[in-house]
Amino acid sequence: MTAPVGKKPVLTVKELVIEFQTERGVVRAVDGVSFELYAGQTLGIVGESGCGKTVTCLALLGLVPTPPGRIVSGSIELNGRNIVGLGDREMRNIRGRDISMIFQEPMTALNPVFTVGNQLCEVIRRHTDATRRQAHAQAVEMLAVVGIPAPAKRMGDYPHQLSGGMRQRVMIAMALSCNPSVLVADEPTTALDVTTQAQVIEQMVLLQEQFDMAVILITHDLGVVAETCEDVMVMYCGQVIEQAPASGLFTRPSHPYTAGLLASIPRIRRERLQELPVIRGMVPDLLSLPMGCRFSTRCEYADQRCQAQIPSLRTATGTDAAVACFKPLGEA
C-alpha cells in the first residue's frame, strides 16, 4: 500500500474473520482481511457477489447481523480505537459521526414517511449539539454541497418526490453531514443510469477532497475504480487475493483472477468484436471450499501446490502489489 509518510492511518483492519451460522453449517464470509486506510485516500474493493466485500464493510460500522453473523477474530481500529466488541451505545455514537455508509439502493434507502430535511436534521442533531434551527441551516448547506438545486425547497420533499440520482445525493449529504473520517460507499451508483452515475461519482471525488475523508468504494465496476481509487483490493471467497495501487493493477495484474476480471471488461475501442474472455467455472460454495488456493479450481495455472496449500499475501516481485498467489503473473 502507498502509505503517506508520517501520517497515521484513520482505519486499520487486522486479520478480520467473520462467520455466519447457516442452516447447512458455518460459513466463513470474511477470512483474514487486513488493510489500512489514510485520510484523503480512496480504496476500492472489488470482487464477485458473495466474496465478502459488503460484509467487511458492514463490520466497519458494527452492522453485521448478529446472529447469524459473528466477528470471530481480528481488530478494526478507527482513529486509533478498536471498535470490535464495542457496546451498542458506543457503536451508535460512532455510526454516522466517525464513519458513514452509503447504500446501493437510493430508491429504498431513505425512510419514505419523513421528509428529506427531517431525516437530515435528525442525523445532525443526534451527533452534534446543534439546535433545531442550526441543524436545519446545516442540512440546507449540505444539500447545496452535494449539488442539489434549490436545497431549501427540497428540504420539505419526501423521498418519493425525488429522482434516484437526487436521492443518492441526499444519502451522500446525510453521510457527510457530521464530517466523518471514513465514508463507506457500497455500490453507490449501480442502481442509477449511466449519466447520473458519472455525476454522482464526480461529486463524490470532489467532496472527498473537500472533506479530506478516507473513502472505501465497493463496486464491481472496474471503470469507476480506475477513475477514483488510489488503491484496489481484490477479494475472492472471503480473502484478499491482491492489493495494489490502481495504476499498477490495471496495467499489470499479478493474480490470475484479477487478470481474468480485467479481461472480461468489454472494450468498445477493440478493433474487432470478439468474444469476451470469461473466467471458467463457478465461484465455489463457501461451505465446501477447495483445500488450497480458493481460486485453484478455476485457475489455468494451478498446479499441485496450489491445490494443497493456501498462498498468503506477499509482495510480488518488481511491483507495489501484494498478491496471494504461488505463481503470480509476470513472475514465473
Partner: peptide, 15 residues
Amino acid sequence: GRDHVRTARAFGTPP
C-alpha cells in the same frame, strides 16, 4: 428488513 431501517441503523439511530 427494509433498506431504510438499515440506513437508520448505519446512522446510529437508537433502538
